[in-house]
Amino acid sequence: MTSTSNPKVPEKKDQVHRVLLGKKQILVTEDEPLLVQLERAGIHVEYQCREGYCSSCSIKLLWGNVIYPFEPLAWVQSGYLLACCAIVKSDIEIAFFD
């Protein structure tokens, strides 16, 4: 498998990453925030504002990297991500409440 961390692979916007959620795996791109891509994959995620100020879409980030093009107004707990505005930058594993 091609490593995404291979420096020879140029950084592309249409980079695809895997999102693991329990036994499910969803492929996402860096073009859009995680939330819309999860929804399109049929996964229900809680939301209210969809622009980073309410924290409803907070999901556990077990490992992997995400970035925020704009710093969200909501407080992001360490070990969590805000799905509505997070751009996935590596393969990641996420989880809802346990």
Binding site: V16, Q25, I26, L27, Q37, E39, R40, G42
Partner: peptide, 18 residues
């Protein structure tokens, strides 16, 4: 805020449930 259409834009990124 536009909510993502659930049915349009098919799940091309969905690899599989398991």
């Amino acid at each position: 805020v536009q909510v993502a259409p659930q049915e349009a834009e098919i799940s091309s990124y969905l690899v599989g449930q398991t």
